[in-house]
């Protein structure tokens, strides 16, 4: 099932103003993504891990997500050291392990994990509705926010519909395999999902118009920036500036 395992919680970061979290996360992720020097990336991993530590979310959930992302990174480890070219780290017969290739793969691994951990700590710790409203306050176009909230509202409904269709297929004895019958069944399931989604959208649209919908979702949730928000935001900003300084000093 689709769920948001990190959204509930009570920690310094969970209580931090969502607008600040979105802003800081964006800046921080870009700083890491554009960094070129290994010490900066090591520092970033440490910062991201400490953010995760502050949020006190379930480490097993985080480990599961890290594993999946690192499976993709594993492909780079399998290919880059062998193909990147000279100078070689060492040779064994026809094979040579490329020095720069290994370094690049290691850097990408660090970057990817640092960004992922920061994203979990700062963004995944808020419910999507809060994220939508925070984006709205940060002047993201209203239509995108509306679309995001609509999609979020109905993703669970449609997931249930999907499971209903699957159950129906199952009690008729459907077993997936590599054959045309399977592809046909899945194509019909997908088609039916789209048909039902469109029909539901029409009903929802009519209902919303009846209630005077004018293109805006109102929220009673007020975002407030209190003193401890400013303190935490300043600390994280200071860390980002340190990273930038570290990057710049290595470049010089």
């Amino acid at each position: 099932m689709i769920n948001e395992p990190f959204a509930a919680g009570n920690s310094l970061i969970h209580n931090l103003d969502p607008r600040i979290r979105v802003g800081l996360a964006s800046v921080y992720c870009f700083v890491i993504a554009l960094a070129k020097h290994t010490p900066v990336l090591l520092a970033a991993i440490v910062i991201s891990l400490s953010l995760i530590f502050i949020t006190r979310v379930n480490p097993r959930e985080i480990a599961r997500r890290l594993v999946i992302v690192n499976v993709l990174i594993f492909l780079l480890w399998a290919v880059l050291p062998l193909t990147y070219g000279d100078p070689a780290l060492f040779r064994a017969g026809p094979f040579s392990i490329s020095g720069p290739g290994t370094k690049l793969a290691a850097q990408i691994t660090l970057k990817c994990n640092a960004i992922l951990l920061a994203f979990i700590a700062l963004i995944a710790t808020m419910p999507l509705v809060t994220l939508g409203h925070a984006l709205n306050r940060l002047r993201v176009p209203a239509k995108i926010v509306l679309l995001l909230l609509m999609t979020y509202r109905y993703v669970f409904v449609i997931e249930q519909e999907y499971h209903r269709l699957l159950r129906a297929a199952r009690i008729r004895g459907f077993r997936p395999g590599t054959n045309l019958h399977t592809y046909k069944t899945y194509a019909y399931v997908v088609g039916m999902l789209f048909v039902r989604a469109a029909a539901r959208a029409e009903r929802v649209n009519q209902a919303m118009r009846c209630r005077g919908f004018n293109g805006k979702f109102y929220t009673l949730q007020q975002f407030e920036t209190v003193r401890h928000d400013w303190i935490l935001a300043t600390i994280i900003t200071a860390m980002i500036i340190c990273l930038l300084f570290l990057e710049w000093s290595h470049r010089a």
Partner: peptide, 17 residues
């Protein structure tokens, strides 16, 4: 908008298949 949101949700779910 409702239609696009709903289809987006269906796309999200269908891409889990």
């Amino acid at each position: 908008m409702a239609r696009a949101g709903m289809l987006s949700a269906a796309f999200f779910v269908a891409s889990l298949i």
